[in-house]
Design a protein around this nucleic acid. Structure first.
Lengths: 111, 111
DNA sequence: CAGTATCCTCAAAGATACTG
DNA sequence: CAGTATCTTTGAGGATACTG
C-alpha cells in the first residue's frame, strides 16, 4: 500500500484504501480499546502473518494513525496506540459494523 | 470478489470487502443521486474498464444492493439503481468522506 | 518479544478487441 | 448502447524460517 500522499487519489478513495486493506479495520478496532503489543494484535487477528502485521502497523504509523512506543526493557516491550487521526477512523468502523448487523445478519460475535 | 455469503467472514470484514474494492464506493455514491446508465457510470468513473464496471455492477446486483432495469428499446437502455440495502451503505460513505475532508485535507472537489 | 528476510501464490483489475 | 471475451500485469498478502 502506497503512502496516502503519493496515491494522487483523495477523500473517499483514500479512506477506501485504508479501510479496505485486509486487517486494518480489525486492527483499528482492537487498538480503540487501548494500547496493544505486537503479539496481542497477532493473537486477536487470527490468521495474520507477522509480515503483514508489521507492514500494516508501519503503514499506520507512517500515516500518523498509530504511534509506536518502544520500552527498551528486557524482554523488549513495544506498544501501539491510536492517535487522534486514527481514532477519527472509528466512526467509519462503526457504520461498517452497523451495516453488517442490519443487512448481513452477522457480526454479532465480533468483539 | 466472492459473494458475501461465501466468504465466511462477517460484519466489519464484509463491509470492508464491499467498501474496499476499487470503484465500489464511487459507484454507490454516483448511484445515490439517482438511476444511472452503464455509459454514464463509465464516464463518471474515469479510468474504469468496461470489464471491471460490468463485474462490479453484477456483484452489487447479486448482493441486492443495486437493481438492474432493462428497457427493451432500440437502442437498448439499461438503468442501475440503489436498493434500500445499497442505500444503507451511504452512512459509511459519508463517514469516509468526512474523514477525508478532516484529516487528509482533500476531497473538496468530489461530487 | 518483536519483528525481518524470502519466496510464492492468486485474484483484482487494466488494456483491448469484439458483439447482440 | 451495453456489455463479453481474452490476455496480462501487479502487488497484497500467506507461509515459513530466522534474529537482535
Amino acid at each position: 500500500m502506497l503512502p496516502v500522499h503519493e496515491t494522487g487519489t483523495c477523500s473517499v478513495a483514500t479512506a477506501a484504501e485504508i479501510v479496505g486493506s485486509k486487517w486494518t479495520v480489525l486492527l483499528v478496532h482492537d487498538l480503540s480499546e487501548g494500547p496493544r503489543r505486537f503479539t496481542e494484535l497477532e493473537r486477536s487477528c487470527e490468521g495474520i502473518s507477522p509480515r503483514t502485521l508489521a507492514e500494516r502497523l508501519r503503514w499506520l504509523e507512517a500515516e500518523e494513525m498509530v504511534v509506536r512506543r518502544s520500552y527498551p526493557e528486557s524482554p523488549p516491550r513495544v506498544e501501539y496506540e491510536l492517535t487522534p487521526k486514527g481514532t477519527a477512523l472509528l466512526p467509519i468502523v462503526h457504520e461498517m459494523r452497523r451495516f453488517g448487523h442490519e443487512w448481513l445478519g452477522c457480526g454479532v460475535h465480533d468483539a
